[in-house]
Amino acid sequence: MAAHNVRRDFRKVLDSAKLIGKNWAPREFRHRFVSLLSDHDIPIEDISRLVGHSTR
């Protein structure tokens, strides 16, 4: 699947949720997710695992 198609479909979902799709990208949701977990004192190892980082 091409990145352009993913972004387009992602924006459609956001628009249908009454958000402004053009203002968001998937990476921004990922960064926000990490920030929220960090703000709530979730251990960095758990955050890393949740966002798919390898243990290497």
Rank of each mutant, 00 (worst) to 15 (best):
S48A: 13
N5H: 08
I42C: 13
D9H: 15
R32L: 14
N23K: 14
D41R: 08
L37N: 00
N23Y: 05
N23L: 11
K22V: 14
H40P: 00
R32Y: 15
D46H: 07
D15K: 09
L36Q: 13
P43M: 04
S54A: 14
N5F: 02
M1D: 06
R7V: 13
R27W: 14
D9K: 10
S38I: 06
G21D: 02
S48T: 06
K18E: 14
A3F: 06
D39C: 05
R8F: 12
R7D: 10
S35W: 12
D41P: 04
R11D: 01
E45H: 01
R32K: 14
R11K: 13
A2N: 12
R7F: 07
V6I: 09
P43E: 15
I20N: 15
I42T: 13
L50F: 08
K18G: 00
P26G: 08
E45Q: 12
S38K: 14
A25N: 10
R7K: 09
D39L: 14
R8W: 01
S54K: 11
I42L: 12
H53K: 05
I44C: 10
L37E: 02
P43N: 15
K12Q: 13
R7W: 00
M1R: 04
A25M: 08
N23C: 11
I44R: 14
S54N: 01
R8L: 10
F33A: 02
V6F: 11
K22Y: 03
R11N: 12
L14A: 09
R11Q: 15
P26S: 03
G52R: 01
F33G: 00
R32C: 08
A3T: 11
F33W: 15
A3K: 12
I44F: 07
I47V: 11
E45K: 07
G21C: 06
P26D: 01
V34T: 10
K18V: 02
L14C: 13
L50I: 01
D46I: 04
G52N: 04
W24N: 10
V13D: 03
L50Q: 09
R8Q: 12
K12S: 12
S16I: 00
I44G: 13
A25H: 13
R56P: 03
S16Q: 12
S16E: 08
V13N: 02
D9R: 15
D15F: 04
E45C: 06
V51T: 07
H4E: 08
S35P: 01
R30F: 10
M1T: 02
F29A: 09
N23F: 02
K18F: 08
F33S: 01
S54H: 05
H40G: 00
V34K: 05
I47E: 09
V51Y: 03
V13M: 07
